[in-house]
Design a protein around this nucleic acid. Structure first.
Length: 424
RNA sequence: GGAGGAGUACCCAAGUCCGGCUGAAGGGAUCGGUCUUGAAAACCGACAGGCGGGUUAAACCGCGCGGGGGUUCGAAUCCCUCCUCCUCCGCCA
């Protein structure tokens, strides 16, 4: 959610910046009109309430002195009727205004390159060497199926398409990655571990920006107004919803493992094979609550934490600065980290590190105080994958595959794999 | 799932039956001060925070007793509804 005062004061400037996004912002035009109407109505109704309050006191005194108050009561009855109708108007204006504000995307940061779509994202750096195979390399689903560590067919039977069974060393590898990453972020990078609920309510989904616009991308629990989380970002960011944090405790960093559930309406036909695009996948998430002035340094730090995972796994990757058209709804700036996937002969997204500035904090009402006397301010929130586990498995299987169909286990994972060096 | 009970400011807590100088008593914690070599204790003082409107900034005004509606001239107090927590029963990993 944008700062209403900023929007009010710099309307055309904000609109211009939002126009660089690949989003529909047509709702914006009604903002000014409604905002003015809201303020006019508030002034009118509060004046009447003020009158009602003071006269009610007078009535109270008259009653106590057993004097006649009928005239005043009659007059206040009319005032109250008027108040009620103005309150009704205000309520509906507020409602509409709020819907508009919730549907406006974040303002891109000046360091986000202006562009239309993924073609315009800017590669910032690459790391590692792309492997050269002296045999015909296979896609991970073939490697895994032959090794008997992933079973897509039975998952289709048991559930449906875009689900998978991990089996044997595959399941062990997935679990090893989760533990390896969680340990790294907790022990080396200073994050506090949390294990969140996998379902959240509507308010939480609205707080981080998944709702109201992207409801069809989420799985909805039928009996309750709950949603399966598309990422641990949702429950973890909402940990501090409606709270005033202590400025001395910032930056506050959490890491969370969770399963993630995405319906992804509209993605049918893309990445239909393998682990790249599943309805359910595992992810280790990083979330940071920080002071506004430090949030861009914090984004670099967060991104470095995600990159560190790939470096330790010795997987080649690159980092992209996402252009304004490809930023997504909530981010002011976003780095995508893409890992090399040999079967695709390209890099694929494995982490997305974003600075939301105060966009989520306003929606979720997450504030802080610098000290006891200070004013409350909105925190800045950031998050990033650290990393998506399924895609990491895919990357390992493909980058570490051997001519005989076996897969070498990255060294850092071996302690988590019972000392095993190869999956065969 | 069934039956009861409860949500008041940072924490505890009075007030709710019987609506009106309670636009929220009291205590604790916290902050400031007196005293002290320093600290503790005692005593004195400050403590509704927050959001919205308004203003260059103030002043000022509105809203706040779990959330949202309603009744009334007037609601912490009456009515409806939802949420959360506690106790007991049932079921269950």
């Amino acid at each position: 959610m944008l700062d209403v005062k900023l929007l009010r004061a710099n309307f055309s400037e904000v609109k211009e910046k939002l126009n660089n996004r690949n989003e529909d912002i047509s709702d914006l035009d009604r903002f000014q009109e409604l905002d003015q109407k809201r303020r006019d109505t508030i002034q009118e109704v509060e004046e009447l309430k003020n009158k009602r309050n003071s006269v009610s006191q007078e009535i109270s005194v008259l009653k106590r002195e057993k004097k006649d108050a009928d005239a005043l009561i009659k007059e206040m009855k009319e005032v109250s009727t008027k108040v009620k109708s103005l309150d009704d108007i205000l309520r509906s204006v507020d409602e509409e205004l709020n819907q508009i504000l919730l549907s406006i995307p974040n303002i891109p940061h000046e360091s986000a390159p202006i562009g239309l779509d993924e073609e315009d994202n800017v590669e910032i750096r690459t790391w590692g060497n792309i492997p050269q195979f002296e045999f015909e390399e296979k896609p991970h689903w073939d490697i895994a199926t032959e090794l008997g560590i992933l079973d897509f067919e039975r998952a289709s039977k048991v559930t449906g398409s875009r689900f998978v069974f991990y089996k044997g060393q595959g399941a062990r590898l997935e679990r090893a990655l989760i533990n390896f990453m969680m340990d790294l972020h907790q022990d080396e990078n200073g994050y506090e571990e949390v294990l969140p609920p996998y379902m959240v309510n509507r308010v939480s989904m609205t707080g981080t920006g998944q709702l109201p616009k992207f409801e069809e991308d989420a799985f909805k629990i039928r009996e309750e107004d709950y949603f399966l989380i598309p990422t641990a970002e949702v429950p973890v960011t909402n940990l501090h919803r409606d709270e005033i944090m202590d400025g001395n405790e910032l930056p506050k960093a959490y890491t969370a493992y969770s399963a993630c559930f995405r319906s992804e309406a509209g993605s049918a036909g893309r990445d239909t094979r393998g682990l790249i695009r599943q309805h359910q996948f595992n992810k280790v998430e990083l979330v940071r609550f920080v002071k506004p002035e430090e949030s861009y340094d914090q984004l670099e730090l967060l991104t470095s934490h995600a990159e560190k995972v790939l470096q330790l796994l010795k997987l080649p990757y690159r980092v992209l600065n996402m252009c304004t058209g490809d930023l997504g709804f909530t981010a002011a700036k976003k780095y995508d980290i893409e890992v090399w996937i040999p079967s695709n002969n390209t890099y694929r997204e494995i982490s997305s590190c974003s600075n939301f500035e105060s966009f989520q904090a306003r929606r979720a009402n997450i504030r802080f105080k610098r000290d006891m006397k200070g004013k409350t301010e909105f925190v800045h929130t950031l998050n990033g994958s650290g990393l998506a586990i399924g895609r990491t498995v895919a990357a390992i299987l493909e980058n570490y595959q051997q001519a005989d169909g076996s897969v070498v286990i990255p060294e850092v994972l071996r302690p988590y794999m019972g000392g095993k060096e190869v999956i065969k």
